[in-house]
Design a protein around this nucleic acid. Structure first.
Lengths: 174, 174
DNA sequence: TATTGTTATACTCTATAACTATA
DNA sequence: TATAGTTATAGAGTATAACAATA
């Protein structure tokens, strides 16, 4: 059995030399370790995509199950509850979503009575999205759920490591 | 220590208290800082999603521009080049993609002569995906590009911080 | 009977352009 | 003329089910 094969080092053409000729059975554990030892698995962007994938799935299920809400609706609701009074344009920019997507998200939240649109007196073209009292209640519950999701997804990190991860992400995410 | 102002604390209906009353002009910088001080902006999963969004966009453009490749194709090509000889099923699991998606990705790479399917002698149902010589050349170039993309996206981090970020992500991404 | 790859299908998400109302 | 929001539409991404070959 190959103990810890350094992968991909300028291997010419010898196809699957590591795979063939090794034996007939691969332990699942060793196999997974092989994948994690890959060049791809060492790249930050790949790891980031993977983390966001598992996290998004988990948080989405949790929100859907308890509040019939999705992460993307929650992110709008959260900013509408924050007190900073975001316009739809600002929501679009900060959430990296197209303005047309914000429309449907706010529509959905408005139909459920969680937010309302207010015409900005200083520029009557723009609509400020603010949470209703019910929306605030739901938002706080959603925040509790998403924090719980963070806890689960980051369970392998110590509290100090979680803080550090948040700090590092904060430096590059904006 | 609580440097970030705790936002949103049960503000009843007073809409945009922070926004109104300050003045008639909002500096873009202050406004952005308000968004970054939000509860949402402090949650790890939100930051992760944002980082992956900007990173994915950047890397995708770079790969498309230089190699007419997308990140998702690169990830398959990279594992096909790694020497571990992944089956399509294994690619599906490690990349968190549906088996049917792997089919079209491998099809595309195969049509370009970058990979080929080999029937696994030990289980003739499964196909091992291996890179051709040309595929290996393209892969190494793609790795160079994605590393460059990482450099750009993480430019605000010190080398030590990048290593630490990769380590923390590695602990939670699997 | 169960699994791998495949195909077909539908659903969600994302991106683009055109329209309106305000500026 | 330019911008905020809206609408419509198409494309990319994702999920599901059914099928053939093999185990």
């Amino acid at each position: 059995m190959s103990p810890a094969p350094p992968p991909h080092t300028a291997t010419a053409a010898p196809d699957v030399t590591q795979t063939i000729g090794v034996g007939q059975h691969e332990e699942p554990h060793d196999r997974d370790a092989q994948f994690r030892g890959t060049t791809l698995a060492s790249q930050v962007q790949f790891l980031t995509a993977r983390l966001r994938s598992v996290g998004h799935l988990h948080a989405n299920q949790l929100l859907q199950q308890h509040l019939e809400l999705k992460v993307r609706h929650y992110s709008v609701l959260s900013l509408a509850t924050s007190g900073i009074g975001p316009s739809q344009r600002e929501l679009s920019e900060f959430l990296s979503l197209d303005p047309s997507q914000i429309v449907s998200l706010v529509d959905a939240l408005e139909h459920r009575g969680l937010v309302k649109r207010q015409v900005d007196a200083r520029d009557r073209r723009s609509r400020i999205v603010v949470a209703t009292e019910e929306g605030q209640r739901v938002c706080h519950e959603a925040e509790r759920l998403t924090r719980a999701s963070d806890e689960v997804v980051l369970r392998r990190l110590t509290p100090g490591e979680r803080t550090e991860l948040a700090r590092l992400l904060g430096k590059v995410a904006f």
